[in-house]
Simulated assay, not measured.
Amino acid sequence: MSEAKTSYFYVLHCKDGTLYGGYTTDLSRRLKEHNDGVGAKYTRPKRRRPLKMIYAEAYETRSEATKAEAAFKKQARTQKNRYLKEQGVKMPLKNQTVCVVREVTGKHDRDAEKF
């Protein structure tokens, strides 16, 4: 019997100042893929790299993580910045040196109002 992998919703800060939200089960592997230019289409252009992982939320299920990702992506940039700051990410984002990882426990129905 194999252990269930933790699912993560994560946020990258791109070199061009934009944010990218995604889903993974392995944060370091996924960051390397993005920085190698083989991650998502959005992060492939050299103008966006290098990317810095600034925030992640750990979930028990893929469904919960992808719902958090979708809700985050629907928000305006000011709302995203406010949410990240509330979670302990340093502003301005270029000053964030480590990835803040938050464990989300229990069943949560993420929706836009949480952001």
Rank of each mutant, 00 (worst) to 15 (best):
Y42N: 00
F115R: 06
M53R: 15
Y23P: 03
P45T: 02
L31M: 06
A68M: 14
A65S: 15
G37N: 05
K85A: 15
D36M: 03
R49K: 10
Y23N: 05
L51R: 11
E69F: 07
E69V: 07
Y42V: 03
R102E: 11
K90G: 00
E86Y: 03
A56Q: 08
V100L: 07
K94W: 01
S2C: 09
K41D: 14
N81W: 02
K90Y: 01
V100K: 14
Y23E: 07
G21H: 06
A71S: 14
H108Q: 12
R110N: 04
G22A: 13
A56S: 15
G22Y: 10
G37M: 04
T78M: 04
G37K: 00
A40Q: 09
R30A: 11
V104I: 14
M91P: 03
A65V: 09
Y42M: 05
K67I: 10
K107M: 04
K80P: 01
R82W: 10
R47P: 01
A68G: 06
G22R: 14
L84D: 02
R62Y: 11
L84T: 04
D111F: 09
A68S: 13
S63C: 08
V101L: 06
V89W: 00
K94L: 03
H13A: 10
T43C: 09
Q79F: 05
K15Y: 00
N81F: 04
F9C: 15
T78Q: 07
N35Y: 00
H108I: 15
K46R: 12
V98R: 13
N95M: 08
L27R: 12
V11T: 15
V101E: 11
T43Y: 00
G88H: 06
R77K: 07
A71T: 09
V89G: 01
G21S: 14
K73C: 08
E60C: 08
E86K: 09
L31R: 04
M91D: 06
G21F: 09
S63N: 10
H13Y: 15
Y20G: 07
K114L: 11
E64V: 03
P45Y: 01
R29G: 05
A70E: 10
E86H: 08
R62E: 15
G106Q: 07
